[in-house]
Write a protein that binds this DNA or RNA. Structure first.
Lengths: 170, 170
DNA sequence: GCCCTCCATGTGATTGTATAACACTTCACG
DNA sequence: CGTGAAGTGTTATACAATCACATGGAGGGC
């Protein structure tokens, strides 16, 4: 695999809804730039480039797909280069890791603090991010009961996105 | 890594609470046996052995740790052998995959149909399974709004289990 | 300004996770 | 029986993640 294409290379690479995509990239980069300046974080070229790639693609990308793009743009092409940039972006909330896919996606709400949850289409691998309400759920009750201290919760729903549902059932 | 040990080889390999462990194994195997017979599924030696391993260990095991055990018992020792058995067990609800750890664990409630959620200790990697209430959450609202059809939801909470919390804060 | 330290990047090597592809066997069933 | 579907075994390879070490630049203390 030389390009970042996965099984969904022919699919619309969007969230689920159409939107003005060009703005995503510039807005996302601008937001990151601003917040890094405010928090004295270093928004270096590699980090910027990786975020740009994620914003452009607008779906979950594996680390090696990202790495291919970095190579094309003259950055280092060894895994740690990508992983370090991704660690930075994830730790500071500019991107998220999709555990189900072992892949990464740009955050859709770069500013607001949030505990995201995701909807992943099993047909085209597109991903949409939803704000996850603070969970007063069976889980937090169980945690309280057993004495487990929850620090972070991953919520990933797998299913079929609207556009793939149309295709399979015409 | 030749044994199945991960970084938690010295930890109590239990859920979080003490319990009569011997019963887990036999009960789990019996339940699987029964349900496979009822549903005309083939509970073959490899599948049985993998479930037995998971029940014995009673914590999340990586596919290659399982593979090591299979080899010791004279089964095929190539990755697909383990992955196929695990696919079977996961698809039919006898085991679950912990996405956060890329590992597998025997189901704690082999009979009841359920949408499980997990609590994962980041210090000792022990895992407890909780029954997750049918989610009337922000997520299902978002799904309804965008037309996404949810088929399965992964919920994994990361944090610190009671016994590790004791250790870090004496 | 100069040095020093910290942080980030680049690189090679290695380990862990997962699947593709193909050959062979076994089982259910007509 | 004979046939087809499902299961198993094996080779090879792709993808994910980390370790260890070398280099280089940005900033802070002096």
């Amino acid at each position: 695999m030389t390009s970042g294409a996965q099984k969904n290379s022919m699919q619309p690479p969007l969230g689920f809804a159409r939107h003005d995509h060009a703005a995503c990239v510039s807005d996302g980069l601008a937001a990151a730039e601003t917040r890094c300046a405010d928090s004295s974080l270093r928004f270096t070229p590699v980090r910027r480039k990786v975020l740009e790639i994620l914003l452009q693609e607008h779906r979950a990308l594996g680390a090696y797909a990202i790495l291919d793009r970095l190579r094309e743009d003259g950055f280092g092409s060894q895994p740690p280069v990508a992983y370090r940039a991704l660690d930075f972006l994830v730790n500071h909330g500019f991107a998220h890791k999709i555990e189900r896919l072992n892949a990464f996606i740009a955050c859709a709400h770069p500013d607001e603090a949030h505990a995201p949850s995701f909807m992943i289409c099993r047909m085209c691998d597109s991903v949409a991010e939803a704000q996850s309400a603070p969970n007063r759920s069976a889980l937090s009750d169980a945690a309280k009961a057993t004495g487990f201290r929850i620090e972070r919760t991953v919520v990933e729903a797998e299913g079929v996105c609207p556009s793939c549902a149309d295709k399979e059932d015409p």
